[in-house]
């Protein structure tokens, strides 16, 4: 999602220009960055929220005991399952039990979208983060702590288009410690991966060397 979009071009146009299908978001730079971080950090039972084509889940599958993918889009669910990934159709983490996952991955829809320019199809849902770019990130963070196992972590892709500081702040508000573990700059945005963990009583994350 690094294309220029200020000229009124919709993401559907972009997808069509690339000769891609228009129902399921296909792997792009953001997916690659998330997969790269996931290969380093993912452990335990792992959930990918908003899996789209299922590509990131497939990349991380060899190194964790179990991967589950979730998406609200039925076309995405089918593509992910065709990759051999266990797939659940649900909104964000709504249908997962408390404490189920040691790792949660999410490359959210984050393009800030003028409500008057919304185009209401599956590709829009895969790209649009509402007016702020954070309309899916907020409810995701609000429910994340519930589905994480004790000591669990999330890897969240953040674009500068959705506001890096604002997302960090939302994560802190929900009791997470954000740590940037990847960053890449593109002409129109900077992509980061935030690793989110919970505060713990032993070893403050910001205290430096642990005696």
């Amino acid at each position: 999602m690094t294309d220029e979009v200020d000229d009124g071009t919709t993401a559907t146009d972009l997808a069509e220009r690339r000769g891609q299908e228009t129902k399921v978001y296909q792997p792009a730079e953001d997916s690659g960055l998330l997969a790269d971080a996931a290969k380093e950090f993912a452990r335990g039972r792992t959930l990918e929220v908003g899996t789209g084509s299922g590509w990131v889940a497939e990349q991380v599958a060899p190194q964790v005991p179990e991967v589950v993918a979730a998406d609200v889009n039925p076309h995405a669910c089918r593509q992910a399952r065709e990759r051999g990934i266990e797939t659940v159709r649900t909104n964000l983490t709504d249908a997962f039990a408390d404490g189920s996952f040691e790792t949660v991955l999410f490359n959210p829809p984050y393009l800030p979208t003028d409500p008057e320019n919304e185009w209401d199809d599956w590709m829009e849902q895969a790209l649009s983060g509402g007016e702020s770019g954070r309309e899916l990130i907020e409810p995701f963070l609000d429910d994340l702590g519930r589905v994480l196992a004790p000591g669990g972590q999330a890897l969240l892709l953040v674009s500068s288009l959705a506001g890096y500081e604002e997302v960090e702040e939302l994560a802190r508000d929900d009791g997470f410690v954000p740590e940037e573990v990847r960053q890449e700059s593109y002409p129109f945005e900077t992509l980061s991966i935030l690793r989110l963990t919970r505060f713990t009583l032993c070893g403050k994350p910001s205290a430096g060397r642990i005696e």
Binding site: V72, P74, H75, R78, T87, T90, N91, D94, A95
Partner: peptide, 16 residues
């Protein structure tokens, strides 16, 4: 269906 549980609430379930 087709090996995929549809765990959307009833009001969100339709649409393919």
């Amino acid at each position: 269906e087709d090996g995929i549980p549809n765990l959307l609430p009833p009001d969100m379930r339709d649409g393919a």
